[in-house]
Amino acid sequence: MEQERQSENYEKSPLDPTNAPSPNEDSERDPLSGEALSLPTFVAGSGTLDRLVETARDYAKQAASENTLKAYAKDWAHFSRWCRMKGWYDQGGADPLPPSPEMIGLYLADLAAPTGKAPALSVSTIDRRLSGLGWNYTQRGFTLDRKNRHIATVLAGIKRKHARPPVQKEAILAEDILDMVATLGFGLRDLRDRAILLIGYTGGLRRSEIVSLDVHKDDTPDSGGWIDIEEKGALLTLNAKTGWREVEIGRGSKDQSCPVRALEQWLHFSKIDFGPVFQRVARDDLKAMGARLSDKHVARLIKRTVLDAGIRGDLPEAECLALFSGHSLRAGLASSAEVDERYVQKHLGHASAEMTRRYQRRRDRFRVNLTKAAGL
């Protein structure tokens, strides 16, 4: 009965006034396009209302980052394909709509212990897949109850049996970043990459935050923030994962390692005074092209300079590369900064001190000895 009521609500939902689509149709549809955000059937359309629908659709797309939306779309496509492969629904596969806690519990179990040749997924990936399904159901006018026993108990069992301590990327410490920038020359591309490494490190920035920076506020529609260079340093205003925040990057004690100086040199020689701060460079290495860099460039740059600098040279190349990523810059700052933890937390934009501690790969453990403090 509950599923019947949900199905009736779906047919009447203003999110999609048409009849519920087949699993094949719905799995291919973007919930933020087409009819997912449209006028209720009882409202007469007009040019003004149609424009408001488009505006609302645009705002809905800004509710999460582009990468998050892509991940959610892939989660739904995978789940829909899995449903079609199960022959429980008129010989054509199980219907993903409305949500069935029993079916989702089976889906989670199959991800953890697949019956076919597909590899088992990690607990964190399974948890993220479930979050993606919850988001997709919400966009389609449903509520996925993660506390339902068919979902919650299966997920708890998966975590209890398969959970492992989180695998953290290695931190790039202060001496490492100096060795990495020392591998770069003084061509235009090297000036850009030096500024990326130093600004990313001292700002504790995510790689997406680095490449989303513009020179000024509102330079481009896809801007994720802008910079103001002042006498004492650079002020970054970021539209980050946790909301708007300001990041202060002070000038360094030496020109070779000063992030603000590196940024100034890049902007000066590239002649960039508008648009994205970090742009692609022409093949002849003589001019900036105006196009914003992908955040993948930051990851590749980190891995390349780590190898060139001989960091963790005791490991084979493949193992060394697997240890470092864009998050190695944030972890490095959190581990190297010898200041009160509260300042690091604010700088990184963390909501809690516990999250900041997860980034600290090297800290003064056992400084507080509760065993002795308890008299033992």
Rank of each mutant, 00 (worst) to 15 (best):
R245M: 15
P316L: 05
S335T: 07
L267Q: 03
L205K: 09
G45T: 15
Y359A: 07
A374H: 04
R81P: 00
L69I: 13
A334E: 06
F186W: 02
C258G: 07
E102C: 08
V339C: 12
G105M: 12
I227S: 05
N136Y: 03
T242L: 13
Y72L: 02
K303F: 09
L130D: 06
A288G: 08
A156N: 15
S223F: 06
S38M: 09
G203Y: 05
D284K: 09
G375Y: 04
R206E: 10
A334K: 07
L301F: 03
E8Q: 14
G313R: 09
I126Q: 02
P316K: 12
L263N: 00
P276K: 02
A291S: 14
D190M: 04
K287N: 04
R140H: 15
K346Y: 10
R280K: 12
H297Y: 01
V281S: 04
I177F: 04
R283I: 01
E102W: 11
T41A: 15
L198W: 06
P17D: 06
L108S: 03
L39Y: 08
A94R: 13
D16P: 01
K86R: 15
S38F: 00
R57F: 02
R283M: 02
L286F: 01
L184Q: 10
P31A: 10
L197A: 04
L370W: 09
L238E: 05
S131A: 15
E230F: 04
Q139L: 11
V260K: 01
M355P: 00
A71Q: 12
E264W: 02
L188E: 10
V247T: 13
K346I: 14
M1F: 10
R189T: 14
L307A: 15
A195Y: 03
A120N: 04
H162R: 15
P276N: 05
A73V: 03
I210Y: 09
D284Q: 08
K161M: 10
D273G: 14
R189M: 06
L267S: 02
L198G: 03
A44S: 14
V53A: 08
F42T: 13
D222P: 05
E2G: 09
A163Y: 05
L301R: 01
G93W: 05
D176R: 05
G132F: 07
S124F: 04
E35Q: 09
L315N: 06
L236C: 10
N19G: 15
K271L: 12
L236W: 07
T237K: 10
F79E: 00
E338P: 02
D30Q: 01
L197I: 13
G116C: 14
R245I: 07
A113R: 15
A282H: 10
G93M: 09
C258D: 13
L49W: 05
P99K: 00
A318P: 00
W88H: 13
S33D: 14
G185Y: 02
E28W: 07
M355A: 15
T55V: 14
Q345I: 09
S253F: 14
E35L: 08
L15V: 06
T41R: 14
